[in-house]
Simulated assay, not measured.
Amino acid sequence: MDYLSNNVAVNLKRTRQARGMSLDQVSEQTGVSKSMLAQIERGTANPSLGVLGKITSGLRIEFQELIQPPRVDCCLVTPEDLVPTKEQTGQYKVWTCLPYEDTRLVEVYRIEVEPGATYISGSHGEKTREYLVVTDGVLTIECHGQKYDIHKDQVFKFETDQGHIYRNMGTEKACCTCFFLDYHGK
């Protein structure tokens, strides 16, 4: 099943079930046969634009709602199973665990800094804030002309409109999870 067919299948089924409608009821409301609707929901049909138009019109939804990537209610991410977004061997690794999405203003990273190493990050732009939780070791964060030692299980917040530095001055790997918030227009 291709990307768009999957999106349509998942979104149609979710919309129908959220409204408590049977396939018969959707068929009656849209003018699309029950068997075609069932095939679309299973991802075995490749509906024409005309059929998709009938569905969106009959259900009174925007066409975009039918073809957009389906909402993900739950998502488990194991950073070590991902390919690092940034990496310098023996220095640091950065994983993008949850990237920014169109309607979401938060991005989640995992950063590991080896003993004695430094990771330098540029500005994330105006009206961006980072919430950082150290999960292992101690990280020294340099931002806004100050240095802060963040220990395991401590949480640190700072504006990321300027470059900032993550340093591991210790003897063990330092790890943190970072949450970036974009609050433009807020």
Results as ranks from 00 to 15, higher is better:
Pro70Arg: 02
Gln64Arg: 11
Gly116Leu: 00
Cys176Val: 00
Thr89Ile: 13
Thr103Leu: 14
Pro47Ala: 03
Val106His: 03
Gln68Leu: 09
Pro84Ser: 02
Lys93Glu: 06
Cys175Glu: 14
Tyr109Val: 06
Leu98Ile: 15
His124Asp: 08
His151Phe: 11
Ile120Pro: 05
Ile120Leu: 10
Thr85Cys: 08
Ile150Trp: 08
Glu172Ala: 11
Thr89Ala: 14
Leu52Arg: 05
Val113Cys: 01
Leu139Phe: 01
Ile55Arg: 04
Gln68Ser: 15
Gln162Trp: 03
Gly163Asp: 09
Lys93Pro: 02
Gly116Met: 01
Gln88Val: 14
Tyr148Asn: 11
Thr160Phe: 06
Glu101Asp: 05
Asp102Tyr: 12
Thr103Arg: 10
Thr103Glu: 07
Ile165Trp: 05
Ile141Tyr: 09
Leu139Ala: 00
Arg71Tyr: 15
Ile61Trp: 00
Phe179Asp: 06
Tyr92Gly: 03
Ile141Cys: 07
Ser48Leu: 03
Pro79Cys: 02
His164Arg: 02
Thr56Glu: 00
Tyr100Leu: 11
Tyr131Asp: 05
Thr177Gln: 13
Pro84Ile: 00
Leu66Phe: 01
Thr85His: 13
Phe156Val: 02
Lys157Phe: 12
Asp81Arg: 13
Tyr166Gln: 03
Gly58Gln: 04
Lys173Gln: 12
Asp153Thr: 09
Gly170Pro: 00
Glu107Arg: 06
Thr44Gln: 06
Val155Asp: 06
Ile141Glu: 06
Asp153Leu: 07
Thr78Lys: 12
Thr96Asn: 13
Cys143Thr: 13
Leu132Glu: 06
Ile165Phe: 03
Lys152His: 05
Val108Arg: 04
Val83Lys: 15
Arg167Pro: 04
Gln88Glu: 12
Val77Leu: 04
Ile150Cys: 05
Glu126Gly: 13
